[in-house]
Amino acid sequence: MLWALCAWRLRYWPEHPDLDIVVLGDAPEDGFSRGFIRVKPADARRGLDDARAQSRTRVQHMARSWRKLSGRSPILSNEGGRADRARKELVELGTHQAAFFPRVDGNALTQSWVDQLLFACLGKDWLTPADVFMHRSSAGEELRNGWGARIGDFFIAMRLRQWAEHRGAEAALESVPYRTDRPPMLEARYRLTAVGDEIKQHGLAEIAQGPPLPMWGVTAYDPAAPWVVAEGPSGARLQRLGARPNVQM
């Protein structure tokens, strides 16, 4: 949000992008964990006394980071750049973003890491999003402990609904109403269709099989902009599907 504020100030007040930063409490180390920052009134007053003026160079730097975060290309689609603090933060954000994009492995096109965890918890039995989140499996444990604090449980309910509604009769999931008077985690139950089981076992036939998912400035599973995660010598990167000769839609 600070990056967005810097970009906004530079756009509308380019001659006076003045910003003072007040730091209260400790933020999560990776920027994704949820929780509270407890600050006493005396701490808040001291924080105002210690306001830090941001230089124009610093404001410009954060504005560039915001434009990259909200750009039409995924963060990890570009390499290079200085190994400074902002670059490291962008790599962390890009790694988070990449988990929601489909992946390529040789000629195989597979679901995103997060979608694959969801499907790993599903089968022929009817399960609510809450059941998926609490699934007694390594995938369920990864959803709870690895992603619960990052995406929240409502994302799981939303994503299951998207898979069930995508492509109508050829959807990967089918759903039935359950406790519609309850929160989204209980309002419906889901199970894999034959299409979903095929995806779970063998991967995607095409990128359009997955429901589109906006991730900041770009959309995952978008046939018009088919970004996929590809592993390389320097780690995971996002590239357009078909960028390598042996990868086809």
Results as ranks from 00 to 15, higher is better:
I37T: 15
A4N: 15
M62W: 15
D49Y: 09
R56E: 05
G31A: 09
G80I: 05
R45S: 10
G25M: 04
R82T: 13
I75M: 10
R58F: 05
A86W: 00
S77T: 07
A27H: 13
R56S: 03
N78E: 14
A4R: 08
G80L: 01
A51F: 02
R9H: 09
P17K: 08
V22I: 15
G47T: 07
R11N: 02
Q54S: 13
A53N: 08
W13D: 15
F36S: 09
G35A: 12
H16K: 14
D26T: 09
E89G: 14
H16N: 15
L19K: 04
R34F: 12
L10T: 00
R11H: 10
W66E: 11
P14M: 03
L19P: 00
G35Y: 06
R85H: 10
W13H: 15
V59Q: 00
D30M: 03
R85Q: 09
L10M: 13
R56G: 08
V23A: 11
G81H: 04
P28M: 02
A44I: 08
R72L: 09
K88W: 07
G71C: 01
R38P: 01
P17V: 01
D43Q: 15
D20C: 08
G80N: 06
L2E: 12
P74I: 03
E89C: 05
V59W: 00
S77A: 14
K88I: 10
P41S: 01
R82G: 15
H16R: 08
L5M: 08
R67Q: 15
D43T: 13
D43I: 07
H61P: 00
D18N: 12
M62Y: 11
S55M: 02
W66G: 00
F36Q: 15
K40P: 04
A53D: 13
S70L: 14
E15C: 10
F32S: 06
Q54D: 05
W13Q: 11
E89T: 12
G47H: 02
L10F: 04
D30V: 11
L10E: 09
R52M: 12
S33W: 11
S77F: 01
S33M: 13
K88P: 03
D84W: 02
D84G: 06
I75W: 01
V23Q: 11
R72C: 04
G71N: 01
D49W: 10
F32G: 03
D49M: 06
P17T: 08
R64D: 09
D30S: 11
R56Y: 10
P74C: 04
V39K: 06
L5G: 12
A83M: 03
G47K: 00
V39G: 02
A53Q: 14
P14C: 04
C6F: 02
R52E: 14
A63H: 00
A51M: 10
L5V: 03
F32K: 09
S65Q: 12
L2I: 11
L76G: 01
D20V: 13
A7Q: 00
R46N: 05
